[in-house]
Design a protein around this nucleic acid. Sequence first.
DNA 1: CTAGCGTATAGAACAACGTTCGATGAACGA
DNA 2: TCGTTCATCGAACGTTGTTCTATACGCTAG
Lengths: 251, 251
Amino acid sequence: MTTDDEVSDASRGPADLVRRRGGGRKSSGRQRSSHSLDAVVSEAVALLDEGGEAALTFRALAARLGGGVGSIYWYVSSKDELLERAADHVLGGVLTATAHLGQGEDPIAEVRELAIAFYAATVNRPWLGAYFLQDTGTQVNGLMFFDRVGRELMRLDLTPRQRLDAVSAVMAYVVGVAADRGQDPPPEVRDGRVPVDEFVSEFRASIRAMDSRAFPFLHHIADEFAAHDDAEQFRAGLDLLLAGLRLQSGR
Amino acid sequence: MTTDDEVSDASRGPADLVRRRGGGRKSSGRQRSSHSLDAVVSEAVALLDEGGEAALTFRALAARLGGGVGSIYWYVSSKDELLERAADHVLGGVLTATAHLGQGEDPIAEVRELAIAFYAATVNRPWLGAYFLQDTGTQVNGLMFFDRVGRELMRLDLTPRQRLDAVSAVMAYVVGVAADRGQDPPPEVRDGRVPVDEFVSEFRASIRAMDSRAFPFLHHIADEFAAHDDAEQFRAGLDLLLAGLRLQSGR
DNA sequence: CTAGCGTATAGAACAACGTTCGATGAACGA
DNA sequence: TCGTTCATCGAACGTTGTTCTATACGCTAG
């Protein structure tokens, strides 16, 4: 699927030599096996979503697939590659979710939608940022997303350099918010065992307990912090970035 | 727990119960030991700088300190905490490096300098983003830096919410660029065994090899990508963000 | 003086992890 | 029937983070 390679060597062992920055094609053609690369990656994402990065182990994944640990290495040559493929897998979801975009009048508004869709996929997936677009050979969806954002900017009056910088900035911002949030709320809040209010008000109290001379700004925004919504805050920052871009492009 | 301590227990073992989001004081008072928390964290940062995140192991760190593995656990209760403290350690360096700032007329220009100094510290330290400001209890320098940036924005005509969103956006952007770059150039280029030109032109060639209908934007910026400088690109994106902020504040 | 306590160090031991390796079939053309 | 390729499996290895116990040293109380 996707674009896929030319022809010929269609069914070589997926995990061969020529690792990073080279070939690395999918297992195009018939799928005789009970696993298939897609199944391995999908289940890996499922494990990551359920228990975070620590939950993804080769043994847990093998048990989930009903196979042995060694089998996974036929499809993937290392855990790093597995994570890269997992990251690209969820980015594939972002691509299909935003397939309807691209016809709008305002390119920047389109970029905004793309970024928001990307953000939605990174929420609760802090590992995504670390493995996003590391290997351009295997991570085709990441490249496609990068290109889609850039294509919108080609409709704007900018230099190629400005376009490249802008796309990189938007990507970095999304990834950064994901990494920043990370494990922000402690696990007991994550699971819902402790109401969010309690954690937030406790945090506000701990801010108030600090020296207001040393941390004037923290005191200043303590209430806002307690009331803020993550997605809203993401959009606020994104809009700052896009406002600067709009200014640069002269509308 | 959580809220922690009242008074008294001033000189308990640094790595005690009450871990995340609570107290966690430094080894206040005399330093009798040959190690001390600062030595442990400093050496950890040195290991990270030399060989990346994989190079930091408790055994390597112990050997470096001339002690046993178990001793480290007296100062630090887990590897996560060690990495958080390491991140906060380099942020302490950023704080002292930017101590001269704060008297300028233009607050946004000051924010720009702060962000650039932060960025300089994250270059070749992709692990920093993942452990930056995870535990507000132990990571005091991160809080201080956050506060310093926010204090500049207090001189601008903005709502508290806008200020909070802006500071968060700037931080996220810096962290995002660090995470994005990550291991971007493969190790053989990192070490200088392969000249950068070769890698870059190879990358450009691989872009040209792709279908230009499927990736029009990648073709469009292939040359720019080959010639771009990371720090310059970082500043370009930062300036977009700050331009939006300047617009919002009405100069 | 000594018994006891908090401080601090050291390393053996354990469980879990990623990865390697050779053995083992199943499918298929010659 | 044989040999080759595809695909699977799990034992085994080395390394990792962490726990646990033993062992000192400096102090103060009795």
